[in-house]
């Protein structure tokens, strides 16, 4: 699994790739919680781009939940974007789609953050 980040206006985008399971969830969680700290300090929001993630297990979902518990009380929303069909099914079965705002495409997720974030994404992509 690989994790990269990018900034678009007041949005921090986290791009994961590969499988998020027992072997990679620890690294994913550490990256997420570090970024939540950064988002809290800079008054930014987080969008997790899962378009390159083939599968996410319960341990991977837990990493998202741990980050969400850290973020939500501080006013940071974690949004999920561009899930593959299998990952979308796992979100539905786990009811994580009731906890996290989910978006079919990145532009819509960034629009939900702010016009500034959406514009920055359009300019770059």
């Amino acid at each position: 699994m690989k994790v990269t980040t990018a900034n678009y206006g007041d949005a921090i985008v986290v791009r994961a790739a590969g499988r998020i399971d027992q072997s990679s969830a620890g690294e994913f969680q550490k990256k997420l919680t570090d970024l939540v700290d950064m988002a809290i300090g800079s008054e930014k929001q987080i969008v997790v781009d899962l378009s390159k993630v083939d599968y996410i297990s319960s341990v991977g979902l837990r990493a998202l939940m741990v980050a969400n518990k850290q973020a939500k009380p501080k006013g940071v929303t974690i949004r999920i974007a561009s899930m593959q069909e299998v990952v979308r099914e796992v979100f539905s079965i786990s009811h994580f789609d009731k906890v996290f705002p989910t978006f079919e495409e990145m532009p819509k997720a960034l629009q939900a953050v702010s016009a500034l974030a959406a514009a920055a994404y359009t300019d770059e992509d």
């Binding site: 979902l61 837990r62 939940m65 969400n68 009811h95 009731k98």
Partner: peptide, 16 residues
């Protein structure tokens, strides 16, 4: 559900 077991109902002693 896993979402409940790891959030609202964490530490309630049950699983998913």
């Amino acid at each position: 559900s896993l979402a409940d077991a790891t959030s609202l109902k964490e530490d309630w002693g049950h699983s998913s």
